[in-house]
Nucleic acid binder design. Structure first.
Length: 278
DNA sequence: AGCCAGGACAAGT
DNA sequence: ACTTGTCATGGC
């Protein structure tokens, strides 16, 4: 987005008539598990991201990030909301009919560039689970092992904190059989055996290989971590919903490549449409 | 009661 | 290289 489309005042940071930015679609499309709709005028979502409490309000055609300074906006949220990407151009470039229909339906979605550790841990929790329960489990883990913020909310627990907590304490958050997986990921990251910082430099195939060394991380979880944590927008997570989509609209010889560059983003349109428009 | 959920793993063909 | 049972838990 161009710079004249932002404004900063005592209320916070404003996105002035942003393109392809609908909070309910961004926060409620299954990419993040830490935001909830709240009671305010207009569409409003709040939650914790990047170690900070954030409230996002739609005011008319504009979006307000409450209490966010210009410095903080460009340091954290510009990248978090992927504001450099032209989603409109991507949508218009789609030649596949069904994908285009889904993209038009979910045209307010943006792929969040989330914290890598939080993304890895959250999508381990997600396996064979449903979104409301994933949110509940993650909320419990944050309350028990995350740092309390000035706002009274809780940050996502660090890998070090979860490694120190141990399997039993992680299990007690309701994680079930995933507790040992979360613990393994926490130990690998906390010990430095896996550096998520350095992993950002890796090309996608090598990053995939690295992620698969974590117990409980298979192709689907790895793809989600690549897409939502590492901005690899060609990574294409296939879960039970996308399997259904492939069976219904495409076929056995389906390949994400038919969507061209940015197939992972298209996947998100397909996912959102299948869950919300049917 | 049985099935499903943003799956992965181990054991068995 | 594929297929199948298992893994916790809660909601329907």
């Amino acid at each position: 987005m161009k710079k004249e489309r932002f404004r900063f005042d005592k209320e916070g940071a404003w996105l002035l008539s942003p393109d392809n930015f609908i909070p309910s679609q961004i926060f409620d499309c299954g990419q993040t598990f830490r935001f909830e709709q709240s009671e305010h005028d207009g569409e409003c979502f709040e939650g914790v991201a990047l170690g900070r409490f954030l409230r996002v309000r739609a005011v008319g055609d504009d979006i307000l990030l409450e209490g966010v300074s210009e410095e903080e906006f460009f340091r954290l949220w510009y990248s978090y909301f992927d504001l450099d990407r032209d989603y409109g151009a991507l949508i218009h470039s789609l030649s596949d009919v069904h994908a285009r229909k889904c993209a038009d339906f979910g045209n307010g979605i943006r792929i969040l560039r989330q914290d890598r550790w939080e993304t890895l841990c959250s999508f381990i929790v997600s396996q064979n689970n449903n979104i409301p329960r994933i949110k509940k489990i993650i909320d419990t883990m944050c309350r028990r092992f995350g740092e309390e913020l000035p706002s009274g909310h809780y940050a996502f627990p660090t890998a070090k904190a979860l490694a120190a907590a141990g399997i039993d304490a992680i299990f007690a958050c309701g994680t079930g059989f995933r507790a040992k997986y979360i613990y393994d990921a926490a130990v690998k990251v906390a010990s430095g055996e896996i550096s998520l910082e350095k992993a950002g430099e890796l090309p996608q195939p090598e990053l995939r290989e690295l992620l698969l060394t974590v117990k409980g991380v298979g192709p689907k979880v790895a793809a989600c971590v690549e897409l939502f944590g590492f901005a690899h927008c060609d990574s294409f997570p296939i879960d039970v919903w996308i399997k259904r989509v492939i069976d219904k609209y495409y076929g056995d010889d389906f390949s994400p490549e038919i969507f061209g560059k940015g197939a992972g983003i298209v996947q998100q349109y397909l996912f959102y449409y299948e869950r919300n428009a049917i």
